[in-house]
Nucleic acid binder design. Structure first.
Length: 112
DNA sequence: GGTGTGACAACAA
DNA sequence: TTTGTTGCCACAC
């Protein structure tokens, strides 16, 4: 089955609450450099049952990937703000909220 | 194989 | 800052 998909989901799952990450960042951490677009596609395939923080994933510039004002964008914005992440004009200040995995977090991930 | 697509990214203006 | 262009890579036709 889809290994890449699993890796991506596991990686997304370790983004801490109140922090965000970019598609490319997730791809890199998942060991799939250059596959940012695949991360996006994968998040769209997440079964509803799964509790995955898909909403903590943004574009490299901090923008929400959905068109501003769309239902999805609003939902994502809401979920983020509930965690304390400030969203303005459909974007987040990465300087303040981007997740910076510590070395041990990365190593822990490699154990798998 | 060729071609188009996509919850992307880097860079130029 | 915002908008275009290009480069990417896995996939579905």
């Amino acid at each position: 089955m889809n290994q890449a998909l699993q890796k991506i989901w596991k990686t997304v799952a370790m983004v801490p609450k109140g922090k965000v990450a970019s598609y490319g960042q997730i791809a890199d951490l998942a060991g799939l450099p250059g596959r940012a677009r695949m991360v996006g596609k994968s998040l769209g395939q997440v079964p509803d049952g799964q509790t995955l923080p898909w909403y903590r994933i943004l574009r490299s510039n901090g923008q929400i990937a959905f068109p501003a004002g769309s239902e999805s964008a609003e939902r994502q914005k809401g979920l983020l703000q509930e965690e304390g992440v400030v969203v303005l004009n459909n974007r987040v200040r990465l300087k303040d909220f981007q997740w910076q995995p510590s070395l041990d977090e990365i190593l822990f991930k490699l154990e798998y």
